[in-house]
Amino acid sequence: MLTLWANFVFRPQPTTHLLWALGDEQTRLAIEAAHERAIQRVLERIECHIAVIRFGTDGVYRVQPPDGLVAARFRHPESRAGMPLLHDHLLLSIKGQRLDGARS
């Protein structure tokens, strides 16, 4: 079976999500903002430097996805055991659209 998604999980280090769980509102908001920025930077790096669409014989042609990446993201505030754990799941499509409109 062909996988069409790459699965990522983003979470702060344990001491940070503990501070997030026990901190006041200002502390939680600051940690969430830093967490959000870290995710954005990773996605920007993937989009600018890693994501390429290969096409042609033996994938000889390579282009960046013209309309960016397609992803679905879900934020969870706790672990499966019910303990506080700030983390995001991100599904990133490994399919893209070429400049000529065809999908690769």
Rank of each mutant, 00 (worst) to 15 (best):
A51V: 04
I50Q: 15
V42H: 06
W20P: 08
R98M: 14
R80Y: 03
G56Q: 10
G101D: 07
D67A: 12
A30F: 07
Q64A: 05
P84F: 13
E32I: 10
V60G: 03
G101R: 08
L4C: 12
E44H: 04
R41Y: 04
A72P: 01
V52W: 04
L69D: 01
L86Y: 13
D24C: 06
G101H: 01
V52E: 08
T16H: 06
G96N: 08
H87T: 09
A71Q: 01
L92Y: 01
A30I: 09
L85H: 15
W5F: 11
D100R: 11
V60I: 12
E78C: 08
A30Y: 10
A51L: 02
F10G: 08
R103Q: 14
A51D: 03
R80T: 04
P12S: 07
D24L: 04
R45W: 13
P66C: 07
D67R: 08
A81F: 02
D24W: 00
L43E: 09
I50D: 12
R80Q: 06
G68F: 06
H76R: 06
A38R: 00
R28P: 09
Q64R: 00
V70Q: 03
T16W: 06
R45K: 10
R54K: 13
L92E: 02
A72Y: 07
L69N: 00
Y61V: 07
G96I: 06
F55H: 15
T27C: 11
I31H: 08
H87N: 08
C48G: 01
H35D: 05
G59W: 10
I94R: 13
W20D: 09
W5K: 11
R11I: 06
A102Y: 15
L29R: 15
A81I: 00
R54F: 09
D67V: 10
V42D: 04
C48A: 03
R11W: 08
L29Q: 15
L2Y: 11
G68L: 11
D88S: 13
S79L: 05
N7T: 07
P14I: 00
R103V: 15
L85N: 14
F8L: 15
A51H: 01
R41L: 13
P65Y: 02
V70D: 05
F10M: 03
I50L: 13
Q97Y: 03
D67H: 14
E25K: 08
V42S: 04
D67K: 14
P65Q: 01
D24A: 08
L92P: 02
M1H: 15
H87V: 12
Q64E: 00
